[in-house]
Design a protein around this nucleic acid. Structure first.
Lengths: 206, 206
DNA sequence: GGCGCCGTCCACCGATCGGTGGAGGGAAAG
DNA sequence: CTTTCCCTCCACCGATCGGTGGACGGCGCC
């Protein structure tokens, strides 16, 4: 049985979620909280495994409550929110939430989400992953095509290896390393290895 | 029934995964592929909903295959890999994979992962989410304190300027530039300008 | 006032790097 | 089968870089 704590300041929503969860054979609702402060207290008291957390709440909001609960350890938080665009979602993820679900999601999706989080996985809609990813890379549009070997050499350059080091690592001559590098410089339109690395990072090649 | 395509160049692994999946009542294995190219072809031909994809494969690796399959549309890719540290995981996510699982994961976790992905969710272990998040924010890291001047010099190095260039730009001697750089190397614990720049980027100093 | 840090500068060395201008072989594509 | 691309390798050059071991004045702090 997965021990779940439901946190939402809206009684109607809470009732709906609880009904949905108790219908599942492997899930048990061990408590309900109406705000963040109560959530923090109950999460520990009831030994919940998963906390289904609303974000917009009085007293202590979902992000803050998530941070405190996760800091406590052993409990995973799954955000249950109304709007996908809510910018608090990313904040909650950074605060340690294992994922988020939309209240509008089908029942099966919510149940699967709870099970996945209980199993240690993260539950994120592709759109949120996309936001994380897009923050991670600087837009990939016109990327010059490096050959596999060139990319390999460039990666080692980025790791701080010298040409002789790279030659040894790849079992090729230093001359060959330099040739690859010169080709990389051409394609990236740079004049030295350092700029090549920063350029490659800007382009999402590394 | 969730239509799944299993892709792995290792027959033993493939057999294990297939056995695991067919034991589930709601999952159907509609095909097996031994490399990326075959995977791309079969994903479309068998109308798979979820592709369980190994990363290290001959002919066409998992990342490239993922990109093509996702580009085709309608099919979700779930990476099934051996090592958590595999840096190709992030590449696969960026290529459009909906998540990843470890081959060492318990059966229930793998099944839950397939169901979650089929339901449109992403399946990522917290450690991977953490990597994405850490790429997304530049704050809250133990960063070595560079002096203003050192930071200035390092920024120009990152821009691809040579030491003489930097000296001219800052109206100081080349010797001074080198002194600053040596101090930067010390603080970042690196041995050359290139690694210093990548290090500084990792630490959010640039 | 002394101590420590910062920024500036110098001379000199060996190692590495960027760049030239080649060359050959293998694989894929036409 | 020819062309094209990729990977490999060589010799040689000047420029740049990493590193050493100093030096001096200024600033803030105890």
């Amino acid at each position: 049985m997965i021990r779940v704590l439901v946190v939402d300041d809206h009684p109607v929503v809470r009732a709906g979620v609880v009904a949905l969860l108790t219908a599942a054979a492997d899930i048990e609702v061990v408590g309900e909280a109406v705000d963040g402060r109560e959530a923090v207290a109950l999460a520990a008291e009831r030994r919940a495994e998963v906390v289904l957390m609303d974000l917009r709440m009085p007293v202590l909001d979902g992000v803050a409550a998530t941070a405190r609960i996760v800091a406590g350890g052993g409990v995973r938080v799954l955000v249950l929110t109304t709007y996908e665009e809510d910018d608090q979602i990313l904040a909650a993820i950074e605060a340690g939430a294992s994922g988020y679900l939309l209240k509008a999601a089908p029942a099966a999706e919510i149940l699967a989400g709870v099970r996945a989080v209980a199993a240690g996985q993260a539950v994120l809609a592709p759109s949120i992953v996309a936001q994380l990813v897009s923050r991670a890379r600087t837009e990939a549009v016109p990327r010059p095509a490096l050959t596999p070997r060139e990319g390999e050499v460039l990666a080692l350059v980025a790791a701080g290896l010298s040409n002789p080091d790279i030659a040894a690592r790849l079992f090729i001559g230093e001359a060959t390393v330099k040739t690859h590098l010169l080709h990389v410089f051409e394609k990236l339109e740079v004049r030295d290895r350092t700029r090549a690395v920063t350029r490659a990072m800007e382009l999402g090649l590394l």
